[in-house]
């Protein structure tokens, strides 16, 4: 329904798309910017220039062909395992939460957490690299022991939206969780 402009913790703009399917079911899609052509070009140029420099001194053509292979393989791995296009959080009251992230290559990975295992959805703070960030996470409980948190599942791990975006998702999620309890 609503689509707003937010930024991630590094200042790149991302978009949050909230869809209300019914009173009990909402979907949040965080879309990161597409793989920029310039970045790809710069990386490729660097590797090839380096390879050419090595070739210039060694005069071994294997260097050039391996550079080409390396670039291709690197790009494949990047779009298949690293670069996430959008991340989706689908929350369905009384049923559970589905998290999916779709990679630039089109590969999708999906996990589902059923309601009985879900303790709460909260915003937490953590030390990440050389900074301290807010992130949204799901607290998982063991249905046998409802009071203890057994593990934590971070949400929007690759897009890392900033606090204002997280707060919006958090509020909507809490609305649904409040009804199912």
């Amino acid at each position: 329904m609503a689509e707003e402009e937010f930024t991630d913790i590094n200042g790149n703009s991302i978009s949050l798309d909230c869809q209300t399917h019914s009173a009990f079911c909402r979907e949040f899609i965080v879309t990161s910017p597409k793989l920029s052509l310039r970045k790809v070009m710069v990386y490729t140029c660097f590797i090839w220039l380096f390879a050419y420099a090595v070739f210039f001194f060694t005069e071994n053509t294997a260097v050039l062909s391996s550079a080409i292979l390396l670039t291709l393989a690197g790009m494949m791995i990047h779009i298949h395992f690293v670069k996430v296009d959008h991340e989706t959080l689908l929350i369905i009251g009384s049923l559970g939460v589905q998290l999916s992230s779709s990679y630039a290559s089109g590969r999708e990975s999906t996990t589902f957490i059923e309601m009985s295992k879900l303790k709460d959805i909260v915003i937490n703070e953590a030390v990440y690299m050389h900074s301290i960030i807010y992130y949204l996470c799901i607290l998982i409980k063991d249905p046998a022991e409802p009071e203890t948190v057994t593990s934590i599942v971070p949400l929007f791990q690759s897009s890392k939206p900033r606090l204002n975006c997280l707060v919006q998702v958090y509020r909507s999620c809490q609305e649904i969780l409040a009804q199912t309890r």
Partner: peptide, 10 residues
């Protein structure tokens, strides 16, 4: 690298 305005106020 990371301007002040990009750091969320706690």
């Amino acid at each position: 690298l990371r301007p002040d305005h990009l750091i969320d106020v706690a």
